[in-house]
Design a protein around this nucleic acid. Structure first.
Lengths: 175, 175
DNA sequence: GAGTGATGTCATCACTTGGTGACTCTATCG
DNA sequence: CGATAGAGTCACCAAGTGATGACATCACTC
């Protein structure tokens, strides 16, 4: 390992592994192995496993508020990333609490900022009733589909191409 | 603890705790404490933690094929039970793999038998295209909503009364 | 080239978890 | 009574996990 890159290697490994397996199922040793680095460096550089996750999340959130899910390009882009890299702690936080509180809170906030709030604003603009509830309902349903697509429990759902799924989901969530 | 009831106590504790926390997050010591029993008895009576889960699942599955989710009474009944007792490994299997393979397989099978297949049959009867895919999509979306309702990530979704939710979901999944 | 601080390595700790085997206790039967 | 089998208790193990602190090594400055 070249000198001084352990920090970056850990951040990359964190993005990849937390995305694939979620937070709880990723161990510090897994992260260190993937990064090609000693596990003790996680504590040194990030204070511990939660700190590493939070730092990796910050890296990923850079851009401002994204468009809402009902815009097909947004949905397609998101589905593509999720299929490629796994859903990760952000979506998993919608469905099950994480071991670490700070991680859980950060993941929830990211989910709201990037999925729920844009949807709520759209529903409100369109004059739908109970826009917050509808946005949360749509986000929860979307989460179920996204996670279900990677869980092995739904063969047909896993086989369907991403663009077919975009059409089905836009229809489902927009109605 | 009265003599000879440890087995039953463990089965009750298993139904309750696996329902509340899911399989992975329930430890054998939790189960034994809840049952008021020594943890070693799990191994003696059920061969181990997976065996206890499978036995508890058998107890719960007794009845035959239930009606499909789009029948409001079925949806209301299911939501009521899930709100009261937690979603449990069956729904969690839709969204994330369990540690134990046998548990994962059994939970998936229960999910298909009790949710996916009835929906698929209904969609097929109604002449919808791709009934299997639509059934899996609806089951995954429903799972997201059910788990999201208990995750703490969706305040509005958690506050909405069950009957309102039945209407919203029937509308969402039936369209 | 000696000192200094950042960087990386290693052995090890404390704790959790599922599991095992030897033991005790009790009830029943001869 | 005394033997036996079933039920329950207890101490312990092995693996895995996150974390820590002592030590080594390198880059850079004076």
């Amino acid at each position: 390992m070249t000198r001084g890159t352990a920090r970056d290697a850990l951040l990359s490994a964190a993005t990849a592994l937390f995305g694939e397996r979620g937070y709880d199922r990723t161990t510090t040793r897994d992260l260190a192995d993937r990064a090609g680095v000693d596990a003790a460096l996680i504590a040194r550089y990030f204070g511990g496993k939660p700190g590493l996750y939070l730092a990796a999340l910050q890296v990923e959130l850079g851009d401002g508020t994204p468009p809402d899910l009902l815009q097909p390009e947004r949905m397609a882009g998101l589905l593509g990333r999720l299929d490629a890299r796994g859903a990760g702690p952000v979506f998993q936080s919608a469905v099950r609490a994480h071991d670490d509180d700070a991680v859980q809170v950060a993941a929830r906030e990211a989910l709201h900022a990037r999925v729920v709030t844009p949807l709520r604003d759209r529903f409100a603009r369109d004059g739908r009733d109970r826009p917050q509830l509808r946005a949360e309902l749509a986000a929860a349903a979307f989460t179920g589909v996204v996670l279900g697509r990677g869980s092995g429990a739904f063969p047909a759902l896993e086989k369907v191409p991403a663009d077919d799924l975009v059409a089905l989901l836009t229809d489902l969530l927009g109605g």
